[in-house]
Every structure is written in C-alpha cells, then in structure tokens.
Amino acid sequence: MLRLGPMHGAVVVVALPLFEEANRTRAAAIDVLRRLAERGIGGALPDLPGTGESLIETRDATLADWRDAFADAAASLGTPAFAMSWRGGALVDNDARLAGRWHLAPLSGTDQRRELDRLRKLGGDADYAGNLLSPALLDQLAAAEPLTGARVKVARLEGDPRPADVLLSGRSLWRASEPAVDPALQEVIATDLANWIAICAG
C-alpha cells in the first residue's frame, strides 16, 4: 500500500475508479495525496485484489472482496480515516469505518455495468476491454450503490448534470485514452477535501 504524508492524524484512503479507468487516474490521484501531504494530511492507496500489485487474478475478484480489502486497509491506518473515491471506487468504500467520504463523479453499479457491457459489445464481445470478469463481480456491481448521507460529499465536474454538493472545473481524466493529469483540478480537489476533513473533524 502506497503511503504519503504524515503517519499520524487524519488520513485519506483512495478508492480509484474501476478497471481501465484506474490506470488512467492513478497519477492524478497520487498527486492529490501529495498536495494533501503538504497540508499535513496523510494518504494511502491500497491495491485491491486483482488490481495493481495484487497477486490475485482480475477474473477472480469480486466486489465483496474489494469492499473487505478497502475496509481492512482503512482500519490498518488509524483514525480518523476518510475515503477519497472516484467514479466506481465509490462502490468500494461502503463497508469501511470512516469519518467521512468524498466522492468524485460517483456512478451507480447499474451505470458501471452498462459501461462494461458497452465496452464488451464494441470490443467484439470477447471480454471487457481486455479484462476477464467473474459473473459474481458483474452481478454484485449491478446491485451496488454508493453510500449517501451527511458524511458523504459528492463532487462532480462542471457539465455533469447529476446531483452534486460541489462542481469542480476540470477534465474527466478517467475518459482519456492515455493516463492524464490536470494539476488545476488536482489542486481544487485537495483544497475541497482538506476543507471537508476539517468540517467532519470539527
């Protein structure tokens, strides 16, 4: 698990977008953690089973495993822990004991599943853009929803018409065909998240 910033006090645990979108956004998310570290806030980026450095095959991963792994990672870091979950990552932080959740452009499991089905169809029905996914994962995704409530803040990019607590100006990095960064967006994310943490702690 990648760690940045101070090892004591508030810590932000990252749930990246799912599948290919994780590769596109990893650098941007780590840059946000660096900016949080400059503000005295710790950061952690766990590798979920079947992703990153994990030894589990993607085809064996399930959403339940991801939620357990994320909850375990958060619990190992001390308190208070906050989730920063982008896109489908907002379906992964549900079971963790957290002081707050900050979601960027979260989507429902139904929408995530629909995007996967579209990728499969446009890719010739062979796999999901290079990923073999288990029926269990696909079924769990279809029924999943991000948590909502007072300790959840929803941020979206300007132009996204869905409900949000705050609109941020920037590019939808998870769409870019190559990994991309948007330093201005990463700065406003770090600022908004640091303010949210201060509010939750207060």
């Binding site: 995007e115 579209r118 990728l119 446009l122 010739g124 996204d160 869905r162 939808s172």
Partner: peptide, 14 residues
Amino acid sequence: SMAVAGVLTELEDR
C-alpha cells in the same frame, strides 16, 4: 473502440 465507448457514455451523461 474503447474510446468510442467513453465518447458515447460522456455524451449520455452531459
């Protein structure tokens, strides 16, 4: 084809 999927989904959202 992967990028087409992203284009279509973003058009739907926006």
